[in-house]
Amino acid sequence: MKKMLLAAAVMTLSCHGYAAQDPQAVYDRACGVCHNGQIPTAPQKGDKAAWEPRLAKGMDTLVQSVTNGLNAMPPRGLCMDCTAEDYQAVIKLMTE
Rank of each mutant, 00 (worst) to 15 (best):
L5I: 15
M11E: 06
H35C: 03
T12P: 08
V90M: 04
D60F: 01
V33T: 13
V33N: 09
Q64E: 03
M11K: 06
L70K: 09
K92S: 14
T12H: 08
E52C: 08
K92Y: 06
G32I: 01
R29L: 08
T67A: 12
V66M: 09
T41G: 00
E85I: 04
Q64T: 08
Y27V: 00
V33A: 12
K57R: 03
K3W: 09
C34L: 05
A50M: 08
S65F: 03
A42E: 04
G77V: 06
C82D: 03
M4S: 13
N36E: 04
A20K: 13
L93M: 13
D86V: 07
I39C: 03
A42P: 02
R29I: 09
G37R: 02
G58D: 02
G46T: 12
T61A: 10
Y18P: 05
G69D: 01
G17T: 05
N71G: 14
A19F: 10
R54T: 04
T95D: 09
Q44I: 11
D28V: 07
D47T: 12
L70V: 15
L78W: 08
A89H: 08
A19M: 10
L70D: 03
A19G: 13
T12F: 14
L70I: 14
M94P: 11
P23H: 11
Q38G: 12
R54W: 00
M94F: 01
A8I: 13
E85C: 09
D47Q: 11
V33W: 05
V10W: 07
I39W: 01
A84S: 09
R54E: 01
K45N: 11
C15I: 14
C34R: 03
T61R: 05
G17F: 02
L6A: 15
L78Y: 12
D60P: 02
L93K: 13
A49C: 11
P40L: 00
Q38A: 15
H16K: 14
A72W: 01
C79M: 01
A30Q: 05
L5S: 14
M11D: 09
M94W: 03
L70G: 02
V63S: 00
A49Y: 01
V90N: 07
D47S: 13
T41W: 00
A50E: 06
A8V: 13
T95L: 06
K48M: 13
P23N: 09
T12E: 07
L5E: 15
M59W: 02
C31S: 03
S65Q: 14
Q21M: 10
M80C: 07
E52H: 11
A7R: 08
G32A: 07
K3H: 10
A9M: 15
D86P: 03
G32F: 00
L93R: 11
P23E: 07
P75G: 06
P40K: 01
P23L: 10
P75V: 08
G77H: 05
S14Y: 09
L6R: 05
C34F: 00
